[in-house]
């Protein structure tokens, strides 16, 4: 019965495409107007926003370039911004009963110390948005997925909470939700029994904005952009300056690259 309903729903929806098109034209006019007015916000907008009705495409590949020399040891502005944006950690009053080892962390500051010289490097660590993500390969239901534009995320509607992706991730980028949540953000649904991780702020990227961490960094150490657009700042810098992939030996072709590790 529910299949029939879904089918009839689809049929009617097809008939309504014309009305979508009219709406879309009106919407894009509004968006263009808003973009023109919002010229002052240019810093947070890297590209012309893709129309809301258009699917992401493999013509883009979003990524980050992180310059660790600009990353101060005692600064965690990026972490805090992520917490506020997605409603975890200090950005939420949930997860009170979970132990520290059970609480979710989408992004964390990692300190590396050279065992011989004692030199310390600080960097933010999150999902590396691999081109060949092990988490996607192992997920039995296809919940762990990579969008056409290279963003790796969990479709929580399909996640059964088996945690195989957490076993497979080389970067410990994923967290499991160990208890009921109540204070989620509208733009970042998350809940008990499913796995989650950095999604490169898909909801912001889809609106043409940059991820919250990149926006918050006081030193502009995190550069967001389209790795496939040769004219983008990130592509130009990656072409002209040295950069590193973490665990590059695994050949996962990461979307997040680091400098000066």
């Amino acid at each position: 019965m529910s299949d029939e309903k879904a089918l009839s729903g689809e049929k009617v929806m097809n008939n309504k495409i014309d009305s979508y098109k009219r709406r879309f034209l009106a919407q894009s006019a509004v968006i263009t107007g808003a973009a023109a007015l919002g010229g002052g916000l240019v810093l947070t907008r890297v590209v012309q926003a893709r129309p809301a009705s258009q699917a992401v495409s493999s013509k883009n590949r979003w990524g980050l370039l992180i310059d660790t020399r600009k990353c101060a040891n005692d600064c965690d502005a990026c972490v805090q911004a992520c917490e506020m944006e997605h409603g975890w950690g200090r950005g939420s009053s949930d997860e009170q009963r979970s132990s520290p080892a059970q609480k979710a962390q989408w992004i964390r500051k990692v300190t590396l110390r050279d065992r011989t010289t004692g030199h310390e490097t600080s960097l933010p660590m999150m999902c590396q948005h691999c081109a060949h993500p092990p988490c996607v390969d192992v997920c039995p239901t296809g919940a762990s997925m990579k969008r056409d534009d290279g963003i790796v995320l969990v479709d929580k509607h399909r996640c059964i909470g088996c945690r195989y992706c957490m076993m497979a991730c080389p970067y410990k980028a994923r967290s499991f939700i160990h208890e009921d949540l109540h204070g989620q953000k509208t733009a970042s649904p998350r809940g008990k029994g499913t796995v989650e991780s950095c999604n490169l702020c898909v909801h912001r990227v889809d609106q043409g904005k940059i991820p919250a961490c990149a926006e918050a960094c006081p030193e502009k150490a995190i550069l967001f952009g389209d790795l496939k657009d040769a004219d983008s700042e990130i592509a130009r810098r990656l072409a002209s300056e040295p950069s590193t992939e973490i665990r590059g030996d695994l050949r996962l072709d990461l979307g997040v690259r680091y400098q000066n590790i």
């Binding site: 729903g9 689809e10 929806m13 979508y20 879309f24 919407q27 893709r50 809301a52 009705s53 258009q54 699917a55 992401v56 997925m145 969008r147 056409d148 534009d149 995320l153 479709d155 509607h157 898909v202 909801h203 889809d206 609106q207």
Partner: peptide, 14 residues
């Protein structure tokens, strides 16, 4: 339908 379009294809019509 919208849910799959949004999560998997980034379509965010209102």
């Amino acid at each position: 339908h919208q849910r799959d379009d949004t999560v998997q294809r980034g379509i965010r019509t209102r």
